[in-house]
Design a protein around this nucleic acid. Sequence first.
DNA 1: ACTCAACTGACATATAATGTCAGTTGAGTT
DNA 2: AACTCAACTGACATTATATGTCAGTTGAGT
Lengths: 233, 233
Amino acid sequence: MQRSERLAEIVEIVRDGRLHLARDIADALEVSVRTIYRDIDTLVASGVPIDGERGVGYMLREPVFLPPMALSFTELEALSLGMSIVQAAADTELQEAAKRVMDKVGQHASNRRQAPKSWGFGVYAFERAQEGFRHMPLIRRAIREGLKLKIDYCSLDERTSTRVIRPLQMEYWGRVWTCSAWCELRKDFRVFRIDKTAACEPTGERFQAEAGKTIEDYLKHVADQMDRDRTRS
Amino acid sequence: MQRSERLAEIVEIVRDGRLHLARDIADALEVSVRTIYRDIDTLVASGVPIDGERGVGYMLREPVFLPPMALSFTELEALSLGMSIVQAAADTELQEAAKRVMDKVGQHASNRRQAPKSWGFGVYAFERAQEGFRHMPLIRRAIREGLKLKIDYCSLDERTSTRVIRPLQMEYWGRVWTCSAWCELRKDFRVFRIDKTAACEPTGERFQAEAGKTIEDYLKHVADQMDRDRTRS
DNA sequence: ACTCAACTGACATATAATGTCAGTTGAGTT
DNA sequence: AACTCAACTGACATTATATGTCAGTTGAGT
């Protein structure tokens, strides 16, 4: 196995967020422990946020990907446009992430000429409804990590209810963000407008994918519903 | 200089779109020509679109960037969301580019577990107004390369006019795309709704950045106008 | 004082990259 | 048809880099 390949492998191994011993990694990749120490050095030097603690092991401070991609100009334009829109249409956390992505691309691009500052796009569309974005970082984390959420939801007919949900997916409708979830109160899938959600906090409980309550089930559910609608009309 | 560094350098050198001889590259990087041939092999093998022709030299088939980036999970989410929106809200060319970007990221990510197919986003917002997108690839190229365009424009009061413009920037307003340009007919900046543009073709002429007619001038112009509006009210 | 596992330095060994040289190939030119 | 150019290839010696082994040190915790 090539060194560069092995470096990528180490990132993949460590990426699960758990603790890893240099000896285990060495065994898995069939090299000596010394090599792993050297590799980790290399990775840290090139910015991968790996923390090592004596007597403990290695951990990733925050998850990373290292996509080794070659982007064409058109792909860069798509990237640039997408990041512009995200900066206009999502919560602060995603806005900042989008900016960082463009910085990383731009930084490298500006080594030489032919790197336009703007890629010819302006995005003005979106009212910056910061209020409506408030819960988005938490909901995203909950989707990622499978956390149950307790929300106070103010439905369209102005009634407020408190319920526990398993958030599955966020949807963007151009102006409004929603969250599709399994609702433990109604024992069914429900869609919540994020800007109509007053309180929102983790219950502390986690949920596992459970037959009939997963994102795949939800998507199929929606597809079936659309089929029925079409047949009726 | 490290091999990996040198590979990146070669891409940077070749990226100007002009012809390069292996010997020149070798001189610039202070290695032998043989090494350059081997490096080019490596690059081509990893997907960089370099064309070599015997007796001629090397050229890049299409421009590329190789951003050596480590993306955090949040940054990946921003990327994923942005690409989803672009796939819903832009012309076919950009849609496909956005898809390719996600494929490139996903391909590498899916080497191991914990690579969600969807990053928890759905984007349903945008009517797929394919008609309105028709001229976008051409306009983007015109902005990039500084091509004058001749357009048949149907303004909001239903009058059609033909004019030559210098396209400067495209704007996205959530549902509608516009193009800001220097209008050679009105000798001023004008904004055109792309979906209201009937015909659109290059005149064959190119334009250079010219004092008072550049994108920077336009942005300043818009900012001044907004200032005046605010003062008045 | 002891354990653990990250970390370091030194040095021999193995692997990979490079330079040199002597070709071949394909397209175009004279 | 002969010639030129520069990409390309293969072989082999040389050099540089990566790796393994070993013998430590360090810092945190028990």
